[in-house]
Write a protein that binds this DNA or RNA. Structure first.
Lengths: 195, 195
DNA sequence: GTAATAACATACCGATTAGTATGTTTGCGG
DNA sequence: CCGCAAACATACTAATCGGTATGTTATTAC
């Protein structure tokens, strides 16, 4: 990794931790650069403006992270409902990056920017579509093996599960860690009704 | 209504429509006053600072609105599951104030401010607690009349439904109106599993 | 009517914002 | 080792932010 690439990555990573906690709008470029050894010269050499940095942040950090934590655990799972529940439990309770009071970066940015910034909206749409598609494919494989009721609309059930993830990340910020456990129990009940 | 009270209400209402669309942080005091006939003298006479205005906004506009649209339709309902579904359908598809691309003010502010502003966090907590309590009481009444399975944990099911509302308001901003219909269908399925 | 106070308007302030213009250093090919 | 572009640093700008100080007008009490 060349030094220039390392510098770019440093900016993106610092931006992620700050934007995750404070939001996109409340995180200034100066703040991002403050604790690094870098200045505005470096920032605007690697990114034309703040929006382009946000785009790179979503595509190069958030998207791979969601693929690793959300999509990958569902791929080629032999038992879909259990895989979905285990993935969600791991993501909510075990993943060291996420903190209850800060929610999920993808969900947060979707809430903040969907109506305000079209390029970033599209990038976030792609990330969440991947997650939805992963759940849907998992359910469809479950239907193929007879584990899930065939008359179920896989895309709709997948949407509902994604709604649950988005909602619990949001309510977790409001109500705190306790509602994670509650949600997981109720999710397990819901998943059982799919069989 | 005296003129002073009317002025204060004008500021709060204009603030609501702007903050609903742009978020709390991205909405400046100047912008709020721009289209009204008022100036900063009026604003800082009625509110000590922006935070106090936000607090009044939540307590005096958002809270009553959620009570009217979310809590009231569930009160003393004889058929809880149907009342919950009808309320949600009405709130998502018919309420003229809400727009899909902007979500729900209470949910938006909870996402933006829960980790950033403790007084506003507490005010939003109170609003959402009321909604959760309304769903829970509705379910408990359904259990008392034998319409809902007695072994069900009413508080957990209520949390799950609130998670759904928060999530669908969020994903609606991302995916658009179509997922509202999908969510309502899946919500109906979930509610049937409670009987 | 006439103080006195409530209810504003006007003008300003320091801090912060995204972004630019222009310098300086670093690394690498020939 | 030298030249030249890449990879930054420094210094600045205009706009905007929340908030204040001070003025002016409207209302009310007596």
């Amino acid at each position: 990794m060349t030094k220039a690439v390392s510098t770019r990555l440093t900016i993106l990573q610092k931006a992620l931790t700050l934007i995750y906690r404070q939001g996109y709008g409340m995180t200034s470029i100066d703040t991002i650069l403050a604790t690094t050894q870098l200045t505005k010269g470096a920032f605007f050499y690697h990114f034309r403006n703040k929006e382009e940095m946000g785009l790179a942040l979503i595509q190069e950090l958030i998207k791979p992270a969601m693929e690793e934590a959300f999509v990958k655990p569902l791929a080629k799972s032999s038992q879909p409902t259990q895989a979905i529940y285990t993935m969600m439990k791991q993501l909510l309770l075990k993943d060291p990056f996420f903190e209850v009071q800060y929610g999920c970066p993808a969900v947060n940015l979707a809430s903040e920017l969907s109506a305000a910034n079209e390029p970033l909206h599209q990038a976030l749409l792609e990330v969440m579509r991947q997650c939805q598609q992963a759940v849907q494919s998992s359910i469809e494989r479950g239907q193929a093996t007879g584990q899930i009721r065939p008359e179920l609309q896989a895309d709709q059930a997948a949407d509902f599960i994604l709604v649950g993830y988005s909602g619990i990340r949001n309510l977790g910020k409001l109500f705190g860690r306790s509602c994670y456990q509650t949600y997981l129990r109720e999710l397990k009940r819901y998943l059982q009704t799919l069989t």
